[in-house]
Amino acid sequence: MARIHRPQPTALICGISGQDGAYLAAHLLDQGYRVVGTSRNPATCDRRGLAALGLERRVAIKALDPSDLEATGALLEAIRPDELYNLSGQSSIALSFEQPAVTFQSIAGVTVNLLEAVRVTRLPTRLFFAGSTAMYGDNGGEPVDESTAIRPSDPYAQAKAAAFAQVIQYRRLHGVWACTGILSNHESPLRAERFVTQKITAAACRIAAGVTEPLALGDLSVERDWGWAPEYVVAMHAMLQTERPEDLVLATGVSVALEAFVAEAFACVGLDWRRHVVCDERLLRRDEVRRLRADPGRAAERLGWRAETTIGEVARKMVEARLFRDQATVRRAA
Rank of each mutant, 00 (worst) to 15 (best):
R40L: 08
D225C: 10
E223F: 08
G109F: 10
R331A: 15
R244L: 15
L323K: 10
R293E: 02
V167S: 07
H174Y: 15
R171K: 13
A11M: 04
D154S: 13
A159P: 00
P189W: 12
R302I: 13
L240N: 10
A51N: 07
C45P: 00
T133I: 15
L123D: 00
R282Q: 14
A2W: 02
Y156E: 07
R291C: 11
P42S: 08
P296D: 04
R331M: 15
V277Y: 09
A202P: 00
I207H: 02
S91L: 05
D82V: 11
L50A: 08
L75Q: 05
D287V: 06
T121A: 08
G73E: 11
E56S: 15
Q166I: 03
A202H: 10
L53M: 08
V277G: 02
A216P: 05
A11W: 07
G297L: 06
N113K: 13
A299V: 12
E56G: 05
L248W: 11
R57C: 03
R285M: 13
G89V: 02
F324E: 14
A2L: 06
V233F: 05
F128R: 01
D20Y: 09
T38P: 01
T72N: 03
A235H: 08
R306N: 06
A25F: 09
D225Y: 11
V112T: 11
T72P: 02
R3M: 10
V254C: 10
L28I: 09
Q90H: 12
A26D: 04
T309Q: 07
Q158P: 04
H276T: 09
R151F: 07
L76N: 01
A315M: 12
D326Q: 13
A251G: 13
R191N: 15
L123I: 10
A216T: 12
P7Y: 06
P189N: 12
G141M: 13
V176K: 00
V330C: 07
W226S: 05
K199Y: 08
L284Q: 09
F128G: 01
I107G: 02
C14N: 06
P9Q: 12
V196P: 00
T44M: 06
R172V: 13
T242E: 14
A26Q: 03
A2G: 07
R47L: 13
A165L: 12
D30G: 15
M1I: 07
A71I: 04
W226C: 00
E56A: 15
R224N: 02
E308I: 02
C14D: 05
M239E: 04
G21Y: 02
D295T: 12
I79S: 06
Q198I: 03
T201C: 11
A300G: 14
D30S: 13
S91R: 01
L292T: 01
